[in-house]
């Protein structure tokens, strides 16, 4: 009698644990994706509403409304970015971009990941932030600023934003808009695989541990994307670097490559 109770309890325990594991996998593969997609859509919708309802405030440099990026104080001129020392205020710290922590401030488009691929970019890289979209490393430069605009994203789970990260190739475009300006970044090399401790990749002139992988040799306006590698692991990171190639005012519409 007692043995029967033990066997039955053990069986029930095994079944319960099995169901729990299955539910957890469903949660990871399916539920987090659903939640992340709807959160990302909400963020993008909120941004677009905000952008259409008035001048963009709270950007990195343009505190005054109507400062559409042509100011002499560090916002890039429209058209080709200026050469070194052109518009960047000397001695500007790369920190203190003025983005609200946890809030989205830009939308990123990467055609390599699919025609419709777009994700909001939020300030900071906390786990709760990355559930809604991509996270901007708070200590790195702001969008389009001199220095390194660094962004992290999930490879797997939470909508798999950077699932196809290894397919990125030199010359691929990354479009980012803050509602005021479209920034076009161009990738310079294939994704670089490194260790999580390789924080030099976020420097304003990226300085990876592997010197041969150094993408740029002088200061400029750069973009860094980071995600994890392997897909379901966390032993390594994949890094992609891009340089700012062109900007255009949002009033002139989407870049040609994003037109439907």
């Amino acid at each position: 009698m007692a043995l029967r109770v033990v066997v039955r309890s053990l069986s029930e325990l095994c079944i319960t644990v099995g169901i729990l594991i299955v539910l957890f996998v469903v949660h990871l593969l399916y539920w987090t994706g659903l939640r992340a997609d709807s959160a990302a859509d909400d963020e993008i919708a909120r941004l677009q509403k905000q952008w259409s309802s008035g001048p963009v405030g709270g950007g990195p440099d343009d505190g005054e409304p109507g400062g559409t990026g042509a100011g002499p104080d560090g916002t890039p001129q429209h058209g080709r970015p200026q050469a070194e020392g052109g518009t960047g205020a000397p001695g500007r710290s790369t920190a203190g971009t003025g983005y609200r922590s946890g809030s989205s401030f830009a939308v990123m488009y990467i055609p390599r990941f699919g025609r419709g691929w777009s994700r909001p970019v939020l300030e900071n890289t906390r786990a709760t932030t990355l559930r809604k979209g991509l996270g901007h490393y708070s200590r790195t430069a702001g969008l389009g600023q001199r220095g390194n605009f660094a962004v992290a994203g999930h490879r797997r789970t939470y909508g798999d934003p950077f699932k196809d990260f290894p397919t990125l190739r030199p010359g691929d475009r990354v479009y980012v808009t803050d509602g005021d300006t479209w920034y076009t970044y161009t990738l310079t090399r294939r994704p670089y695989r490194t260790l999580p401790s390789d924080t030099g990749v976020l420097d304003s002139v990226p300085a990876p541990v592997n010197k041969a992988a150094t993408p740029f040799d002088r200061p400029g306006r750069y973009l860094t994307l980071t995600t994890c590698d392997p897909e379901w692991g966390s032993s390594h990171r994949l890094i992609a670097w891009a340089r700012l190639d062109a900007t255009r005012p949002a009033s002139e519409g989407k870049p040609d490559a994003l037109q439907d």
Binding site: T125, R126, A127, Y137, A152, P196, S197, T199, V201, T226
Partner: peptide, 25 residues
């Protein structure tokens, strides 16, 4: 599968990244 940021020792010490560049996969 939830670490996407480069954060060095700081992130690992706290279990889940939080400090300089906290993060996820």
């Amino acid at each position: 599968f939830n670490d996407v940021t480069v954060d060095g020792a700081a992130g690992r010490a706290t279990g889940i990244a939080a400090t300089v560049a906290g993060g996820t996969a």
